[in-house]
Design a protein around this nucleic acid. Structure first.
Length: 425
RNA sequence: GUGGCUGUAGCUCAAUCGGUUAGAGCACCGGUCUGUGGCACCGGGGGUUGCGGGUUCAAUUCCCGUCAGUCACCCCA
């Protein structure tokens, strides 16, 4: 067998490329409708851009090597550090809020599974310089409008949102100390993936009392803000955060995406740098990995770029989204064919075929024709096989039975006939 | 990185208990059809059965290793 692509890397044949272009086209279209502008950075970065904040253990998941100049480098595994560097370099000059998006190809050295490769394209949408929840709502609306633009509905995809600050304040009210909070977040993150008894034991081991564990777990299913308020209304901090959260939902209602959204305090996101509202998008059947995840990371630019600026963003990979759309029949079946296929009755008109093709092509029409002499039926079949929209047949002028020089099937836009009339066939 | 399952043509799958030259459909190429849209018929190319080793008179079939895919962990973009 011929040499295959490396594990976790993909060849994009035209059919797959059409799918990729379809998804990326929607990403860019929706991002622009929300007035985000596109940027990009280098796919190869200094290794310490990623190890500085995440620690050396992340190196195991990076494509890293020493370049010929002796520099430790890595293929980018995520876009946020690059964004932080770029934004920090021009922090004072940028008009706030910054609304940027990018579609980088990202790399991670991990054993692959369905929906998880060693390379993928990921839409990154970020807002910098706005601390209010109005920005959080705007961000989530972008992600949801992309789902809508893909042809999905709120019964296909659910957005689950949480607020890390709120959860932290609730834990504090339950007597969990600041030092324990990250570990408790870790248990909450795994709540759906491990038995409740195991979670209880782990929480107990972290020093939580049975009563506070019960109180916490009771809120980890479907909850409303009112229930949270009933239980934690005594905490002024929770009150303040709940008010923000309510305004957030008010914004989502105004953006007409509220019916996609569910509160789920189990969503804490693995990454430690999230500080506020976080969210994930899942297929409603729960068959696939998360489609999208993001949230607020107000301290990250400070630690990575040295500029104190509130920030939030999400990443949406192409792999899981394409899987979902393929399952739902929402991807283009085949790559687009030429608009026009020009067939000819006899080799005597082959010169006219090229003239006609050129006249149409110079006016923006995509045109293909047979590169070798073939019978007309063969050409028509080739046109069909190529998925051409129109067949233009040039007739043999020596044939007394024909009255026109050419014919169309089906009828073309009138201007195409004018182009042919002006052309010197 | 750990463990389970699976590898036959580009795709979907056959091949009796281990037994002749590994077959079929789709796809692709050529031909017939004097013709204007996926028809029909004829023909063709395409396989070191993932790769390597072992057992055997004989391996697609049994065993081991390896590579790849996949699932669960791990981790999460």
């Amino acid at each position: 067998m011929a040499q295959a692509a490396l594990p976790g890397f993909r060849d994009f044949y035209p059919e797959q490329f059409a799918e990729r272009a379809h998804v990326m086209g929607i990403w860019r279209d929706v991002a622009r409708r929300f007035a985000f502008v596109e940027y990009d950075g280098p796919p190869l970065e200094p290794l310490d851009l990623y190890t500085k904040k995440s620690g050396d253990e992340i190196v195991g998941q990076l494509y890293n090597f020493t370049d010929k100049g002796g520099r430790e480098v890595a293929l980018r595994p995520e876009m946020t550090p690059t964004l932080a560097r770029m934004a920090a370099a021009r922090a004072n000059a940028l008009r706030k809020p910054v609304r940027w998006f990018s579609v980088p190809q990202l790399f991670r050295y991990e054993r692959q599974q369905r929906g998880r490769l060693r390379e993928h394209f990921q839409l990154n949408v970020d807002i910098l310089g706005e601390a209010d929840v109005t920005a959080d709502a705007e961000l989530l609306a972008v992600a949801i409008e992309i789902m809508r633009a893909c042809g999905l509905s709120s019964s296909d995809v659910r957005a689950r949102v949480s607020d890390r600050r709120l959860l932290r304040a609730m834990l504090a009210a339950l007597g969990v100390s600041d030092e324990q909070t990250p570990a408790v977040f870790g248990v909450i993150d795994k709540l759906d993936r491990q038995p409740r008894d195991v979670s209880r034991e782990k929480l107990a081991a972290l020093g939580m009392t049975p009563d506070s564990i019960d109180g916490l777990l009771a809120l980890m299913g479907d909850v409303t803000l009112d229930e949270i308020e009933r239980q934690f209304g005594g905490s002024p901090e929770v009150q303040t955060l709940l008010a923000d959260f309510r305004r957030y939902f008010g914004c989502l209602e105004g953006l007409d995406v509220l019916d996609w959204v569910t509160i789920d305090l189990k969503i804490v996101r693995g990454l430690a740098y999230y500080t506020g509202i976080v969210f994930e998008l899942f297929d409603a059947k729960g068959e696939l990995r998360a489609i999208c995840g993001g949230g607020r990371y107000d301290n990250l630019l400070q630690s990575l770029g040295g500029v104190d600026m509130p920030a939030l963003g999400f990443g949406m990979g192409d792999v899981v989204l394409a899987e979902l759309l393929r399952d739902r029949g929402l991807l283009p079946e085949r790559s687009e064919g030429p608009q026009v296929w020009i067939a000819t009755e006899s080799p005597s008109t082959s010169h006219a075929v090229r003239r006609a093709a050129t006249a149409l092509r110079r006016n923006g029409v995509s045109v293909e024709y047979a590169l070798r002499d073939q019978q007309l039926m063969k050409q028509v079949k080739a046109a069909k096989a190529a998925n051409a929209s129109f067949v233009l047949t040039l007739h043999d002028p020596a044939d007394d039975n024909v009255t026109t020089r050419h014919s169309w099937n089906p009828a073309p836009p009138p201007e195409w006939d004018r182009l042919l009339a002006d052309a010197d066939l």
